[in-house]
Design a protein around this nucleic acid. Sequence first.
DNA 1: CGAACACTTCGTGCCTTGACGAAACGTACG
DNA 2: CGTACGTTTCGTCAAGGCACGAAGTGTTCG
Lengths: 234, 234
Amino acid sequence: MNDAVSPSRYQLAEIGALLAEPARAAMLLALIDGTARPAGELARAAGVGAATASAHLKRLLEGGLLAVHEQGRHRYYRLADDDVAGMIETLAAPRGRPVLPDPTGGDRPLRTARTCYRHLAGRLGVGLCDALLQQGYVLAASEGMRLQEHGAQALVQAGLDAARVETLLPLAGRGCLDWTERRLHLGGPLGVSLTDALLDAGWLRRRATSRALQPSDDGLRRLIALGVPWESGS
Amino acid sequence: MNDAVSPSRYQLAEIGALLAEPARAAMLLALIDGTARPAGELARAAGVGAATASAHLKRLLEGGLLAVHEQGRHRYYRLADDDVAGMIETLAAPRGRPVLPDPTGGDRPLRTARTCYRHLAGRLGVGLCDALLQQGYVLAASEGMRLQEHGAQALVQAGLDAARVETLLPLAGRGCLDWTERRLHLGGPLGVSLTDALLDAGWLRRRATSRALQPSDDGLRRLIALGVPWESGS
DNA sequence: CGAACACTTCGTGCCTTGACGAAACGTACG
DNA sequence: CGTACGTTTCGTCAAGGCACGAAGTGTTCG
């Protein structure tokens, strides 16, 4: 009747329109690991010409989904923040029908551990999230997940830098739905900073070409000691 | 280069295209409380003619966002499941800029308590979620939030039907972002069934016209006894 | 049984939007 | 300083999608 114009309907439609074009969707998915990429690379990833890509990137930028960093004659685009990343990973997760079980086989490393925007995802990400929650190191509340005092102590004892762990205490984490595992892992500022700490400590290493992550032997041992479930296979 | 065609880009674009039209967005938002509404009512809510509305509803149906229930000469449409509802409420939440603080004043009841799809949202929803988590009645894990044994006992002691509470134990809850509070409340199957139990027990009552909920005096007392924070004002 | 009703399907016109090539702009490099 | 390169802007064209009126299907009611 008179619920004529709700402002949120246009907000919803605006975001939808940005995602509606396969070329734009491909660009966003290419950036989901949190890296920043130049326009030309995104054009190739989307399968369109440079001019077309530029127009798409402009719209995504004005829509607030992307941020840009100019450097010389390159313009590096990245996702605006991890709210956007979480939104995209949520929408890209297959709803309804079950996820296809690894058709190519080539994405095994991706399923093991990868970055989702800037936090840890994949089997290792889900396992770490489980371990932290089950042992009460991280507690959920309505304002988000918070690292507890004794959880911080456990991380330090496991080998992380104490000052670094200290900075994690005020940060809030969010559950982020994993598209391979269909379970939650730890995202949000807490998830991002914790993943950074793991990378800097050498427990995980970035692979050169993809957004897959490779745990070091030592790092894997320490993670298992923290309670992360892991079968030796793969 | 050769990341030419990822299937998920089309999945993302498909969902985006469904949301991209203001008329369709308005229809989805009109259904966000979990009610089922006939096509004509949705046409009026979207501000389009019957023929146009029918075409939109068909697309939403084929896209898996809606379900339909035929009854006589009416066709009642509703959201397909609460994954869809959560997705929409997440996307409709204003990103970035802060949420406007109650411009009309008319949505006070909505901010207090309402249904989000079929589970409890608003200040009361956030407060209940907090109470359950802080007292360990509900624990988060990567597969979702689960009601614990002693949490079930607490609910029974507070006055809910024991057999009813029993059915909640195997259900998984999910955090659902609240657009008025910008904090999480309890959604998913667990949130839906728990809200049903509260309604059937008379702790909450539906208001006639909107999706706002009104706690009964007795119900509010029992919720506060469960640990839900509440100021007497409003 | 016929009229009113709810909804869908069909056909048409209009407008938005994405694609590309050509050209302009700015930076890097020899 | 001129050329090569990455990126954006402009102009044009074609296609897709939305809106509506008219007609068709099935249901309810007098």
